[in-house]
Nucleic acid binder design. Structure first.
Lengths: 125, 125
DNA sequence: TAAGTGTACTAAGGCACATGGTACAGTCTT
DNA sequence: AAGACTGTACCATGTGCCTTAGTACACTTA
């Protein structure tokens, strides 16, 4: 599924968030698919269920999953992302692009990189 | 110069790093220009000099500034960025691009955004 | 009924961050 | 030579977030 890095400065629940988000964005987890339960994922990653709960809670607020009490958590659709998440991403995108241009990369190189990213995304139709 | 956000989850020294990096990347601080001293910047931002010191130390390791004991710290040139920093940026760029494409943005929209970023960058020749 | 689901608490410990203080070596101005 | 400025290096302290552990409750499903 994905792995944790305890040497990373970022908190575990952030790594869980990014790991799940990545699986959904790349199509490894498709829309409507059931995610592992809080306790199950906690057991797999050998961490506390509370930490998983925190990650799920945040992902739900970002629009990446919805939850039904007693049934479980499920991956949301593409159009369900929050505006706040989109703004955050655009900020990260612009900052990275500006700095990479400063470091000598060309607009063509970055544009080509987007093409490759477009290939990775949405392999799930 | 730039401002701190105490409600932000990121540590202060990270915000200082990003603030200075942004000023250098956008040309507001040019190559070879002297940066404010550790104590001066600490006074301006109303924080501890140790925190500034930590930010400067990290920026030097990233290749964004060089320092001369007794004289001060100075903005480095474009070609002095570390490879590690470049790899970090490329990772952030790809991740943001992939997720934005998932959320419905087109490659053309992102490419156009890079053009605008290219306008902001390097206004200092 | 029993097992599995999300959710909500509380208590405790660990760790990074930030502060305050002191000190030293080097550079520059006077 | 003296003083003011630079970066740098400690140490001790407090705070807040993260993480764990444990318990409990409402709901769904087999």
């Amino acid at each position: 599924m994905f792995s944790l890095n305890y040497r990373d400065a970022r908190p575990i629940y952030e790594q869980v968030k990014e790991g799940l988000r990545r699986l959904m964005v790349t199509g490894a987890i498709q829309m409507g698919e059931k995610l592992p339960s809080v306790r199950a994922l906690a057991g797999t990653l050998a961490i506390n269920p509370n930490t998983i709960q925190r990650a799920y809670e945040a992902l739900e607020q970002e629009g990446y999953l919805y939850t039904i009490v007693g049934k479980g958590s499920f991956a949301a659709g593409k159009g369900d992302g929050s505006l706040a998440r989109r703004e955050t991403l655009l900020g990260q995108f612009d900052a990275a692009a500006t700095e990479l241009l400063f470091l000598g990369m060309t607009t063509e190189e970055l544009a080509h990189r987007i093409q490759k990213a477009n290939g990775r995304e949405g392999q799930a139709r």
